[in-house]
């Protein structure tokens, strides 16, 4: 249930693969886009939780899960997979309880992208576990 806690923030093997397979400029732009994706999807999740809307919550974590796993951000991707399971059962209250850990996991990912602590100043005022 909490396997994401043992997962690496970034899997070195995936990072190495991406560095091998992509043009350096492309990779830099993709990681910049991922930083934006984290903030926007987290914002969408926060709004969905605040409004009690299951489907947008599910969509936000599904989208962020895919983006994170593709880029090797396993801790965030695996946590999103867990949140998606909760959303699928309609248990938004459980997601709200996990919100501080989700925010910390997002910030750990942002930290690896060189942008720590930017995403959640607004969101944490919307979602109060």
């Amino acid at each position: 249930m909490t396997a994401w806690r043992q997962a690496p923030v970034v899997a070195d093997a995936v990072a190495a693969e991406l560095a091998r397979d992509l043009d350096p400029e492309d990779l830099s732009q993709i990681l910049d886009a991922f930083r934006v994706d984290i903030g926007s999807r987290a914002g969408e999740l926060a709004m969905a939780l605040a409004g009690g809307h299951v489907e947008p919550a599910q969509r936000a974590v599904h989208s962020l899960k895919g983006a994170a796993l593709n880029l090797g951000f396993f801790r965030l991707g695996q946590m999103c997979a867990h949140l998606q399971q909760l959303a699928q059962t309609g248990d938004l209250a459980a997601i709200v309880v996990l919100w501080p850990e989700f925010a910390a996991t997002c910030n750990d990912s942002l930290g690896r992208l060189g942008h720590s602590g930017l995403a959640f100043e607004i969101d944490s005022s919307i979602v109060r576990p």
Binding site: L18, D21, L22, D23, D26, L27, Q29, I30, L31, A33, F34, V36, D37, R41, S63, L64, G66, A67, N70, L71
Partner: peptide
């Protein structure tokens, strides 16, 4: 693809 980083990743891999 609706997520921009994933969209850019696929396009980048295809160019590669």
């Amino acid at each position: 693809e609706d997520t921009s980083s994933s969209r850019m990743l696929v396009a980048g891999l295809l160019r590669g």
